[in-house]
Simulated assay, not measured.
Amino acid sequence: MSLEKWGWDSTFRNHYEPYREQGLIPGRVIGESRHIYEIATSEDRLSCRVSGHYMYTAANRSEYPTIGDWVLLRFSEGGAVIEKLLPRKSTFSRKRAGVETEEQVIAANADYIFLVFGLDGGRNFSRGALERFLTRSWDSGATPVIILNKVDLCEDRESFYIEAESVSSGASVYMTSAVTGEGLESLDAYLKEGKTVAFTGFSGVGKSALINSLAGKEIMKTGTQRENDLRGRHTTTTKSLIQLESGAILIDSPGIKELQLWGTEESLDNAFSDIAEISEQCRFSDCTHSGEPGCAVQEALSTGELDHSRFENYLDLQRELRFLERKQDARQALEEKAKWKKIAKLQKSLNHIRKSSH
């Protein structure tokens, strides 16, 4: 199968050119489980790991391949290993769960991100959750698309649509049902040959059922929900990349319990474009919107042009990103120091080997 069928385009081709003469072969990560990667090349599919040199020079886990990545392989008598990761054109990430300040890349090189929410009650949809997902999605480099799924189980679908539309910041909103097929034809515009669509959302919102409906057959296992909040149990436990008959490429990943933000304060500008536009009218360019004279945001709040709850969500996410940014700066300095220490150690070992051979 040609690489173009897996989304290979001029961007990745240009990144690959400097390595062509080194005998490295490009491939896409179509499966990942416990540091073993399934790679699709133009000739075959194979399982492999990263090389020792790769492990030695990677500064952190976010620099390791993930589903959707394009990598370069080196073949030898012992098989193939991943030698290099090509630059990503989009990265959907979150802060890794726990106390560590570390990026967890959920999917790479997606053209679109389908943000799937269930309208069957429980905690599967809220405006705050949507704003959080949009903040990460707009910052990823991919185009977010909001999917309000399970409309067959919702008696007040229009109110959810209006609420989602009010905070979408330009992202398209669709209502679907994997059970009845309602709204699925509207998604065909995104499911074009060579285009990659990543699915994300909480467990139990119907991502796997939606993928099965789009594929026209059962290729993903579906599961049940907890009764107390209608959140689902994980049925997708590994990341995988799926091809549809249309030629579109889908990325399915395990459901998310909590999406912790990753990025900088500027990440909010697209998800809260209304606030960003109003802020441009403030008298002072560094206005914090907390009482300065000539604050256009406070004026919009007083007139009702800007919703108070939306602004409060904005401030909450802003505080979270500012705190994260401070911790990131300190961690990156340590990682850079450790990276060059490892490189120096490797260079010293190579020099010792060369001297021994002479």
Rank of each mutant, 00 (worst) to 15 (best):
S246H: 01
E185A: 14
E193K: 13
E312I: 12
E227I: 13
L115R: 04
S168V: 01
D111P: 03
T236C: 12
M175T: 05
S159I: 11
N149R: 05
K192N: 04
L73S: 04
R45A: 03
D252I: 10
G121C: 06
F75M: 12
E21W: 06
E266G: 04
I275S: 07
Y112D: 00
K342D: 00
R132C: 06
S177N: 03
S309P: 01
D44S: 15
H308Y: 12
K84A: 11
T180H: 06
Q243A: 13
E277T: 07
S349D: 09
Y314A: 03
V50W: 09
E4Y: 09
E100I: 10
S290C: 09
R322K: 15
V116L: 06
F133R: 03
L334M: 13
Q281I: 01
G247N: 02
I36T: 14
I211H: 06
S273N: 11
D252M: 11
S159Q: 14
K339L: 09
G232N: 10
D156T: 06
Y37C: 06
L72K: 11
D156V: 02
A142T: 00
K239T: 15
K89T: 02
W138V: 00
R326W: 08
I30C: 12
N228W: 07
A108I: 02
R233A: 11
H352L: 13
E277G: 04
S126I: 03
E83W: 02
D252T: 08
F12C: 04
L321H: 05
V151M: 15
D139K: 15
I147C: 06
K339F: 03
D111E: 02
D286T: 13
T11F: 14
E280M: 15
Q281E: 09
S285Y: 15
E4I: 10
F92L: 13
